[in-house]
């Protein structure tokens, strides 16, 4: 996707996130949860669960979803839609670049 005014933010060293790891980072005034799947791929969503503010980076993941640790709402890592409730989170493009993790958001 081509984007304007959406810039890449280096949030951490790639080694910060081993496979299966997940962390939340502040990007400007936004909070983004970054996940490294077992496959090594990266995913990023809003850090805060829209239901009751749970920390999604503390949730459990599989290749398709993250499950909030507070009340088990599950969000698609692809589009942020919720599997079991009327909520949604935003997802962000995230990549590894020169040993660093780069999140694209405004």
């Amino acid at each position: 996707m081509t984007t304007g005014e959406v810039t890449g933010h280096r949030v951490a060293a790639a080694a910060d996130l081993p496979p299966g790891g997940s962390r939340a980072y502040a990007v400007g005034d936004m909070q983004v949860a970054v996940f490294r799947l077992r496959s090594g791929e990266l995913r990023a969503t809003d850090a805060v669960c829209p239901h009751a503010g749970g920390p999604l980076a503390d949730g459990q993941t599989d290749p398709t979803k993250v499950v909030c640790p507070l009340h088990s709402y599950a969000f698609s890592l692809a589009d942020g839609s919720c599997h079991n409730g009327d909520y949604a989170v935003r997802t962000y493009t995230v990549r590894e670049e020169a040993g660093e993790i780069v999140v694209e958001c405004g």
């Binding site: 910060d16 996130l17 790891g21 962390r23 939340a24 502040a26 909070q31 850090a47 920390p55 503390d58």
Partner: peptide
Amino acid sequence: GPGQFADNLPL
């Protein structure tokens, strides 16, 4: 591993 006790509720 890294970040086991990192705060995941930013800031």
